[in-house]
Design a binder for these strands. Structure first.
Lengths: 241, 241
DNA sequence: CAGTGGTCTAGACCACTTT
DNA sequence: AAGTGGTCTAGACCACTGA
C-alpha cells in the first residue's frame, strides 16, 4: 500500500472503518466481514487490521465476540453508553431510576444552547424535560437538548409520559450517532422555585449541577444535558463514569 | 514457556512487570532493559512483551519514549497523576491554584477513615488540612488522610505553611506508591461553620463535595481525600478526569 | 464440523535519540 | 553510527461459537 499519508497504517485503517460506521455504510448491530476478508479488501495484514479494530473496540464503536464475529456497537439502553454518571446505593450496587418525561417541545435554540451545541443562531432544537425517580422519590431534574437537524421527525410521536427515552436511543442508532465523548462541568447550586417543585425540596437546598455536552464518533455535538441532583438523602453515591 | 496458568502469556508478563514496579525492584524514573533483552530474560517473544508493556503504559505505570527507552512512571507533580478533578477557567485553560496547608496532624483513624482506607481500628493516619486558593480567593477546603504505615516519618518535618505537598509526592515515589485508580462520590452540601470560615462564604452556601479514595498499583488504599468546593462564582468549570 | 476471533512467534524495516 | 521503541508482515496454533 502506497503511503503519502504520514499517519501509521493502522490509524488510517481505523479512520476508514470509523467512517464506514459513522456514515451508516455499516449499520448498528451489523456483523463485519471476517478479519482475513477485511484485511484482504483493505490491502493490509491481519495484524494491522486487528490493531485498528482494537482501537474501535476501545472506543466502544464495535464489539468483538470470539467465535461469532465483530459487530457494530448497539446502544440499546441508556446505561450502555452515553450515560456519563451513575448512581449507586450505599452497598455499591447501581441503581436504575424510573424516568418521567414531563415535557417535549421543539423551538429555536437559546443563545447558550447554540453556543454549547455549536449551532447557528436560531437553529431548531428538541427539548426534553424529565425527572428521574429513585424509590418513589424524584431526585434528578433534567433537561436534554438535541439539535433537530440530527433527529428529524423526533418530536412527532408525542406521548411523553409513556415513551420515556426509547425513541431517543432508537434514533441514535438509526442515524449513525454513536456517543464517544462528553465534556462535563460540575457545580453546586441552591434549588430555585421550579427545581424545588419537581424535586420536592425546600428552596435553597444544595443541588449537584452537572452540565454536559456529548459528542459522537463524527465529532458532532449531539446532546446537551443539564441535570440537577438532590443528594440530600446521602443514600446514594454519584460517580462520574 | 510452560503454562499451567490459564491467563494469556502477555497478561502474566504484565503482572510480573507490575510486581517489579510495585515492589520497588524497579524504582521510579529508572529505565527498563531494552525490549529484546527483557523478552529474552522472560522467555517470550518481543511481540508478547510489547503487548504487556502497552498495558502498563495504558495504566500510566511506565512511559515509553521512542529512541530513548522505557521508564518507570514518575509522579513529579500533583497534576501528573493522582489528581482526579481539574479546574478550568471559562476559556477552557487549566487553572493552578495556590495551596495553603493549615494543619498537619497524626493520630488514630476515625471509624470512617478506617473503613474507607481499609485499616484496622485505631491505626495511625496523617491528616492534612489545606485550602486551595484561586486568584487570591480560597475556593476549596480539603482534608487528605494517609495511612501512616505507608508514609513512615511523614509528619516529622513539620513546616506546613512552606512545604505544600512536595514531600507527599516525594514519599509516594520513594515507597513504590503509584496511583492508578480512585473511587469518587459526588454530592452537594450546605456550608457549615468551619467551611464558611475557610472559604469566606455564608453558612448555607451550596458546596460541591467530592469524597475520594485512591488506590495504588498494588491495590492498596493509599489516600482518602474530602474536598469542599465553592463554585458560587461560576468563573471556573470543575471536571472529573 | 467449519468459521470466527485470540494468542504467540519471528523477522524485516522505519523513526527517533544520543553519542 | 549505534541503540532504542514503533510499525508491519506472515504464518502457526488455540479457544470459542453455532450449525
Amino acid at each position: 500500500m502506497r503511503r503519502p499519508d504520514a499517519r501509521p497504517l493502522y490509524v488510517q485503517v481505523e479512520a476508514i472503518l470509523n467512517e464506514r460506521i459513522v456514515s451508516g455504510s455499516w449499520r448498528s448491530g451489523q456483523v463485519l466481514p471476517a478479519e482475513p476478508e477485511l484485511a484482504a479488501e483493505l490491502g493490509v495484514s491481519a495484524g494491522t487490521l486487528r490493531r485498528a479494530l482494537a482501537g474501535l473496540e476501545r472506543r466502544h464503536l464495535i464489539q468483538r465476540r470470539q467465535g461469532r464475529g465483530t459487530y457494530v456497537a448497539q446502544q440499546t439502553s441508556e446505561q450502555a453508553l452515553g450515560q456519563f454518571f451513575r448512581v449507586r446505593n450505599l452497598a455499591g450496587q447501581p441503581v436504575e431510576p424510573e424516568t418521567l418525561v414531563t415535557a417535549l417541545v421543539t423551538g429555536p435554540a437559546t443563545e447558550e444552547e447554540a453556543a454549547r451545541l455549536r449551532l447557528a443562531p436560531g437553529e431548531e432544537v428538541h427539548r426534553i424535560d424529565r425527572s428521574r425517580i429513585f424509590e418513589g422519590e424524584p431526585r434528578i431534574a433534567e433537561r436534554i437538548t438535541l439539535p433537530a437537524a440530527l433527529f428529524p421527525g423526533f418530536s412527532l410521536p408525542l406521548a411523553p409520559e409513556q415513551l420515556g427515552m426509547e425513541i431517543y436511543v432508537y434514533y441514535r442508532n438509526r442515524h449513525g450517532i454513536i456517543v464517544v465523548r462528553s465534556d462535563e462541568k460540575l457545580s453546586a447550586i441552591a434549588a430555585a422555585e421550579p427545581d424545588s417543585a419537581v424535586l420536592g425540596c425546600a428552596i435553597g437546598t444544595p443541588l449537584l449541577l452537572i452540565e454536559r455536552v456529548t459528542f459522537d464518533a463524527a465529532g458532532r455535538a449531539v446532546e446537551m444535558r443539564v441535570s440537577r441532583l438532590d443528594t440530600r438523602a446521602h443514600r446514594y453515591a454519584v460517580e462520574i463514569v
